[in-house]
């Protein structure tokens, strides 16, 4: 048997509700004074680190994942067929789940959603935009990068002026979108506003598979179609923390580590390959 709360108890309850509301109003006002948004998918989400879902890919990125509000350049070190965009899309799989999904700016009108789906990109959460080259393309990319509802953007940028690049960087800093730029190898010598620059080269060296062309036997048939890449981080965004736990100013530093990856074409999983530095001759006397 339950009793209705007394008038006194109702009064206490109301007072507590009013106090809680007043506290929330004060918090919102404090946030506004600091120029931040109220909790939600605003300021707290904008600089968040997103794990790609692949331990291998996360190990490549300087911060161990994709940082919201940044641009990443994927430079095709081996030419258009080198597979740099494949690797970028494998990293972008996590962005499909974020916010409103992935937007692909396909001004060349060659994007194949069937192949993207085979890499794990959900077509229902992918928007393909096909502007014309030139001013229309620049406007489109900036509009998409500015929109907070977008999870990630993939854009092919063969030629990119520094002013436009800078506008894109400011756009993602404001919106928290992750921008993936697929660029040609020659862009490595151009100035960049990207936080992370990766040079992806199809790995044609090493003992895996019969890579050497044998002119007497012609092209070699090989089991499996898995691909192998050598990835070098040309620039990485690195956050430092002092011993006091306060976050210091971000600084850019160059990284020269190169890693080898292999994509298993049956499982779709990426594997990190060990790099052989040099072989050490075995001491016969020790072998006993």
């Amino acid at each position: 048997m339950s009793r209705e709360p007394s008038v006194h108890q109702q009064g206490n309850q109301r007072r507590r509700q009013i106090d809680a509301l007043a506290d929330r109003i004060r918090r919102v006002e404090r946030l506004r004074q600091r120029g931040e948004r109220a909790p939600g998918w605003g300021s707290e989400d904008d600089g968040r680190l997103i794990k790609t879902g692949s331990v291998v890919l996360d190990s490549i990125f300087p911060e161990g994942g994709l940082r919201r509000g940044t641009l990443m350049e994927w430079l095709a070190g081996s030419g258009p067929g080198g597979g740099a965009v494949t690797l970028a899309l494998l990293a972008a799989r996590c962005l499909v789940k974020e916010r409103g999904g992935l937007v692909v700016i396909d001004q060349r009108r060659v994007f194949n959603p069937v192949a993207a789906a085979a890499l794990g990109i959900d077509p229902e959460r992918t928007l393909v935009v096909r502007p014309r080259e030139g001013a229309e393309w620049l406007w489109t990319v900036e509009q998409v990068l500015r929109n907070r509802a977008v999870g990630g953007v993939l854009v092919w940028a063969d030629h990119l002026e520094s002013v436009a690049f800078r506008r894109w960087q400011l756009a993602v800093e404001t919106s928290g979108v992750v921008g993936m730029l697929a660029r040609p190898c020659r862009a490595a010598s151009e100035p960049s506003w990207a936080s992370v620059r990766l040079l992806v080269r199809a790995d044609g060296a090493g003992e895996w598979g019969k890579r050497e062309y044998n002119s007497s036997h012609g092209p070699q048939e090989r089991e499996g179609r898995g691909r192998r890449w050598a990835v070098r981080v040309l620039r990485g965004h690195h956050r430092c923390q002092t011993s006091g736990g306060h976050q210091a100013k971000e600084r850019m530093r160059d990284l020269s580590a190169e890693v080898s990856l292999e994509l298993n074409d049956e499982t779709g999983r990426l594997h990190l390959l060990p790099r052989l530095v040099h072989t050490t001759p075995v001491d016969v006397s020790l072998a006993g």
Binding site: V85, V114, G120, E266, G268, R269
Partner: peptide
């Protein structure tokens, strides 16, 4: 959305194709 535990193979829409069988750039 894709769930955390969904594997790549579960969501391979083009069921016949693996990740290496169809090109990303298709004329």
């Amino acid at each position: 959305t894709l769930t955390e535990n969904e594997s790549w193979n579960d969501r391979c829409w083009a069921t016949r194709w693996g990740p290496a069988n169809r090109p990303l750039w298709l004329e």
